[in-house]
């Protein structure tokens, strides 16, 4: 199993899964709940994906053994905090979008992330040294 460790590729796979879930939801949402509701949920989800991307960029550049990557950290912080949060505020102020629907879209990201992590923990995929495990390689 080449991608079985809880490494940074886990996040890339999770982001892909969230994108697929949102893309599947969009046509069904438009059909069953209406265009604006589905678009609000979709926008909330996309905002959550972008937020997660920049959050991981901040953590990767700030918390690493080689020391802080200052340039990347500053760029990620400048994009995440003023620009992304302004975009979120703009989404909240769109009259057709209900804040509750935006929140549901944002929660889809967290739900997928939490469920994938929980699934790995319950299945015990990260326990014990295996070939793709960084810690296992260090022990060996």
């Amino acid at each position: 199993m080449p991608n079985s460790n809880l490494g940074l590729d886990f996040l890339a796979r999770t982001l892909r899964t969230i994108g697929v879930v949102l893309l599947i939801f969009l046509p069904f949402g438009v059909y069953y709940f209406g265009t604006y509701t589905a678009l609000a949920v979709f926008s909330g989800g996309v905002w959550g994906i972008v937020n997660l991307i920049f959050l991981s960029a901040v953590v990767r550049s700030a918390i690493r053994p080689e020391g802080i990557d200052t340039a990347r950290l500053i760029v990620a912080l400048l994009v995440k905090f003023p620009l992304l949060y302004l975009a979120g505020y703009a989404l909240l102020k769109v009259p057709q979008f209900s804040p509750l629907n935006l929140l549901i879209g944002f929660s889809i990201c967290l739900a997928v992330l939490a469920l994938k992590a929980l699934g790995r923990a319950l299945l015990g995929l990260d326990k014990g040294p295996n070939k793709s495990d960084n810690l296992g390689e260090a022990v060996r």
Binding site: L11, L55, I63, R64, L110, L113, A114, D126
Partner: peptide, 22 residues
């Protein structure tokens, strides 16, 4: 303590930070 486990720790940190930020 364990620089070789940085990838795993970063991922767990990102998941935790996302949930806290939420």
């Amino acid at each position: 303590r364990q620089p070789e486990a940085a990838g795993k720790i970063q991922t767990a940190m990102i998941i935790g930070a996302a949930l806290i930020e939420a």
